[in-house]
Nucleic acid binder design. Structure first.
Lengths: 349, 349
DNA sequence: CGCCACCTTGAGAGCGCTCCCACCCACGGA
DNA sequence: TCCGTGGGTGGGAGCGCTCTCAAGGTGGCG
């Protein structure tokens, strides 16, 4: 804890450089249309005084904040057990930094917090928002729409009745369905015929999409070969036991994520040989998990950091646009992006 | 991406409620010294108009931001592989939320980013900072001190020459040394005599402290029983192999964290029985790791979320103090806190 | 009945900045 | 020589809020 010195103002710099506030302001903001000698002089004054613009004063007039909120709506502890968000945050952070924007992190603990988030966003503290981890029928998109803040979602928001609440929604997502298809096709290509699926929590579109991808390939899959789970290792164990009970003859498992695959693998190791008897494929390619399972896990890679970066990029581009044409030319409304996935072969399948 | 409506101002609320701006301001900020009937009236006007105070305008005059920066200075990818930060963030977030403060996240990628962080902090955008993951001789504390921002560190900062750069530094840390002692004593209590230690990266005070704790108990430990590592599972594997080579007769291992313990365990499983031949203790009690190793890992628990919460609490308290006595009464300068750890017995030792 | 004290309210200044607009000063062409 | 043009500069308003201070109203007490 140390003392804050009172910081120099534009006025002070102007006085020192012997020019007006307006000129200093121009220099500080790029120096367009100011004689080179003056620019020099002002720059020197800025350095000497250690001047740093007061962001509050600036925002007050520009109505820009150079800040973006990142909303992580995930009450469950699970989130913190996997590096998913950390990676996305990292991608976001990099992109925002490159655009001199700040990252305001809003973590919610259950839906009671939604009101707070809504209030904050409506309060015009940030230029835009990046929102994660929505569940089916989540009220957050509606809330955010109400707040009137430009937003990009991480993962496709979904509603159980298939409608969109309002307006177009921009999101960045992985090609979960396509990736799942690739995974299952790979198993088929290995000659497996009794392929099981351990799902994620089906109130998340990513889990639903992966299940759909599974079904795309296994068109009339025996329902006993599908076990609902929750993306956790423990859940994966449970589901795997269930599957083995119901269908001892299964010869492959596609788990909706690496974590649940690792749980499944633990169970399988006691009763089967992997991949000889049962081949296993995961999803995500979370390195610390996939490389250290026994055997190493074949999985579907998605570039999580890139997703984060892309979300930020799309949002910032939208904000720029919006700033440029004062009265919304419908020109380049940003649209959603679905990133491709790739199958990563390791030993488990 | 949606449109921002122009938001109502204090003025508008005042007009609607038929009072002055000053009165509305009073009500919005707690309503002290305003007649109850007026408070009512203003509150209603606020609701009807959906008024939300403009933070920029407010900060401009109060010089407070109700925002705290969280600086995570960790270039290595490793960070994102363990839930450590996520948990701390969560604790911090909870505490800040309870005090209506926002969390501005500053992630750095290597030291090139330090200047940016320094500039940001010096820019007076936030009321204080919480800083993590310092390494030995890290320039960040100096930078931050220069910026004059009240700061609480996560983990004890350290300098190789044993000095502090300047002024008193406030930090929150676990009792790494004491926890390590407990772990090793537990192994001794189990009758183990040839106890090895897998260290963390020794440019971090936590790793050094744990090593010191190990040495406190194993006063003249054979240096061959100490293997330097890096807190990762892979590093743990490597170190374990090294130890087994050098000292095949070892009968216990204290790993500086759970991740490296899990790596060690993987190696041990192939060559020894755990815990019969070799007992293993970790550190952190990272549930997703400790509960799923084979066998489940005995470890030293630290309450990471609580550390985060405490850091925030100390910082906020300091800020309050500081606000109260305009000219720093030396009264209650906040001081560092070291949290106790507890040994959690599972099957590995 | 008058005076003083206290509580509530409003007026107004000003936080530090941006941005519009008017001004000044070369210039160049008529 | 005079006026028009245009780039460079400064003046000043105002963003939305807080906070000081003075004005007004009320009650208690002499």
């Amino acid at each position: 804890m140390t003392e804050t010195a009172s910081r120099p103002t534009l006025e002070a710099v102007a006085a020192r450089a012997g020019v007006s506030r307006a000129t200093v302001s121009r220099v500080v903001n790029g120096g367009e249309g100011v004689r080179e000698t003056l620019v020099e002089r002002v720059r020197r004054a800025v350095d000497e005084l250690g001047y740093v613009p007061n962001q509050a004063a600036r925002s007050l007039v520009t109505r820009r904040h150079d800040a973006v909120a990142v909303v992580i709506a995930e009450p469950e502890t699970r989130v913190f057990a996997d590096p998913f968000f950390a990676l996305q945050l990292r991608g976001i952070s990099k992109e925002l930094t490159a655009h001199d924007s700040q990252l305001v992190l809003l973590l919610t603990e259950g839906r009671e917090d939604y009101a707070r988030v809504g209030r904050y966003l409506a309060g015009g503290h940030v230029d835009g928002a990046l929102v994660f981890s929505l569940h089916l029928d989540d009220p957050l998109p509606g809330l955010i729409h109400g707040a009137g803040v430009p937003t990009v979602f991480g993962g496709r928001p979904g509603w159980s009745d298939g409608t969109r609440v309002n307006g177009p929604t921009v999101y960045v997502d992985s090609d979960n369905r396509g990736g799942a298809r690739d995974a299952v096709r790979h198993l088929v290509g290995l000659g497996r015929t009794r392929i099981a699926h351990i799902t994620g929590p089906l109130d998340q579109t990513s889990a639903v999409d992966r299940l759909d991808g599974f079904r795309d390939v296994m068109v009339d899959a025996d329902p006993r070969l599908i076990a609902e789970s929750d993306f956790t290792p423990a859940g994966g164990e449970r589901a795997m036991r269930e599957l083995l009970d119901r269908c001892p003859e299964l010869d492959a498992v596609f788990a909706a994520n690496d974590l649940s695959a690792s749980g499944a693998l633990r169970v399988l190791r006691e009763r089967r040989r992997v991949p000889e008897d049962v081949a296993v494929v995961g999803f995500d390619d979370m390195l610390p998990v996939t490389e250290q399972t026994d055997p190493p896990l074949t999985t579907v890679r998605q570039d999580i950091e890139e997703m984060g970066r892309l979300m930020a990029r799309i949002l910032l581009r939208g904000l720029e646009q919006r700033g440029r044409d004062e009265r919304g030319s419908m020109g380049g409304a940003p649209s959603s992006v679905v990133l491709p996935t790739t199958l990563v072969r390791r030993a488990s399948a």
